[in-house]
Nucleic acid binder design. Structure first.
Lengths: 191, 191
DNA sequence: AAAAAAGCTTGACGAAGGTCAAGCCCTAAA
DNA sequence: TTTAGGGCTTGACCTTCGTCAAGCTTTTTT
């Protein structure tokens, strides 16, 4: 079971699973390798899985009517991602998920997760606690977006996630923060 | 138990609770009445409760360094609100929650909710499912904020929540959408 | 190693929307 | 019914930031 060490450690930070529960949980997992620039989720197809990044980096983005990209999330090791709306409602995705590097991800199907959460209380607890944190984080992002200037948002991000900011292309960061790449360039050149 | 009908109906849309579980759950609930303009959460104090609105309207907002208000959420009947970060971490709140009308809210304490979620599987399921939906919604709001113009955001909101838009002051809606009240006024006068 | 693709920078320009200030309107209290 | 306060509107102005275009640098591919 060494191959699922990372995700099991992640869960262990929230709840304790028995040997039997671990076995049941890992039985629904599937490891997938993707190459840089490969899509894991595409509009039109249902986002069947919750995806956990073991190694690499992935961004989720929305392509608007004018062809502009808007990044929903940037994930590296130990992050989950999916098109949540598509995943929860089994409707076609509206977002792309694209590997920014060659990556290894662990995937778990909606039906399997729901079935296990229905049977295993501690797993249900884990997902509840994890998602609550994610929600608090998402709320914070909304407020940051409407209350701070571009420059503040940029430096906040770079200071909070310096390793991610160095790792992803600047235009990805720009579309995550809602700033044009040119403006990011100008902000950087000021100092 | 007629007094908890609304919130129990809300839960019943996600999971089924036994008589005994309903009794345990309602035992941790407390009903509070607040007057218009009264604060339910204030910066500096821990947001102890998850709050459910039975009747009335409440907004949660952040006051920035320059004294500008930024609305995190606008809730009416059948909505939950809290300062999630404060509630989850038992740290002082950063947001205000203010009654926009005389309101009736149901409150449940963090410790009580956690204790019950640890014991009652279906309640844990309920919160998990509800929060997952809230997260998907919050993600959507982030994307709307960075990808649409002020005018689009305004009309989207008014079309999606016409009854809320009519019920709350325009400056509240403005600070929710990240637009100045003057601009909202101009957008409206165009048509 | 050469060619192509992807990403970053800089400048000129313009539009969207914020700020400030004044006045109006409506509700609720005296 | 008058007055005060809260909320909304309108105008003038100005700042921020996005767009377009061109050139440069770095990375990837053949």
């Amino acid at each position: 079971m060494g191959k699922y060490k990372e995700i099991l450690d992640h869960i262990a930070r929230y709840v304790e699973l028995s040997e039997r529960e671990i076995a049941e949980f890992t039985s629904i997992l599937k490891t997938t390798r993707v190459k840089k620039r490969q899509f894991i989720i595409q509009p039109g197809f249902v986002s069947e899985y919750r995806n956990y990044i073991v190694k690499g980096a992935v961004r989720v983005f929305y392509l608007d009517d004018l062809g502009k990209e808007h990044t929903v999330s940037i994930g590296v090791e130990d992050w989950f991602f999916t098109d949540f709306h598509s995943y929860l409602n089994r409707t076609p995705a509206e977002y792309f998920a694209e590997a920014l590097e060659d990556s290894i991800i662990i995937q778990m199907k909606y039906d399997d997760v729901e079935e296990l959460c229905g049977r295993i209380h501690s797993l249900c607890q884990y997902f509840r606690l994890y998602i609550e944190k994610a929600l608090s984080h998402s709320n914070q992002r909304v407020i940051t977006n409407i209350s701070k200037t571009s420059e503040e948002r940029y430096w906040d991000y770079v200071n909070t996630y310096p390793q991610i900011a160095n790792r992803v292309p600047q235009y990805v960061l720009a579309s995550y923060l809602g700033i044009s790449p040119e403006s990011i360039s100008r902000i950087r050149s000021k100092s």
